[in-house]
């Protein structure tokens, strides 16, 4: 009987084996954990967006073509989407529990819900500040 022991492999084969094992290792972070981090980001950035737009009026500061759109809500929404897709992945990646690609795919799954929640929070804070 042939035993498959590490000493029977060459160094090159060992490296390949380690790489394959690493690739096949399932992510420890579930979609649910990323989802809840995203929920928190949506709520916090929704509130922040309102106060930033209301008090700093970036559209008055920058004079760009379509300035208000790109420097006002557009800019804040871009920061939000970027945070939504990167922050949860980064948090768990540095804890060594997820890889960028699989984390990114999981982060994309609830994008619609998160964006709807973000604007709902913005609208709600706007309404209570009348």
């Amino acid at each position: 009987m042939i035993s498959i022991e590490p000493e029977n492999f060459t160094q090159k084969e060992m490296d390949l084996k380690v790489r394959m094992e690493k690739k096949e290792k399932p992510d420890k972070i579930s979609e649910a954990k990323i989802y809840w981090v995203q929920i928190m980001i949506s709520v916090l950035l929704g509130i922040t967006t309102y106060y930033v737009l209301e008090h700093t009026r970036p559209s008055d500061v920058f004079d760009l073509p379509l300035g208000g759109f790109f420097t006002g809500l557009g800019l804040m929404a871009a920061i939000y989407v970027l945070s939504l897709l990167t922050l949860p992945i980064l948090i768990y990646h540095f804890k060594g529990k997820t890889r960028y690609y699989t984390g990114f795919r999981k982060a994309l799954k609830s994008l619609g819900t998160q964006i709807a929640l973000y604007f709902l929070v913005c609208g709600f804070v706007f309404m209570i500040n009348i």
């Binding site: 559209s59 073509p65 379509l66 300035g67 208000g68 759109f69 006002g72 809500l73 929404a77």
Partner: peptide, 8 residues
């Protein structure tokens, strides 16, 4: 947002 877009 959209008002500024409409204005320009």
């Amino acid at each position: 947002g959209l008002w500024h877009l409409f204005e320009t």
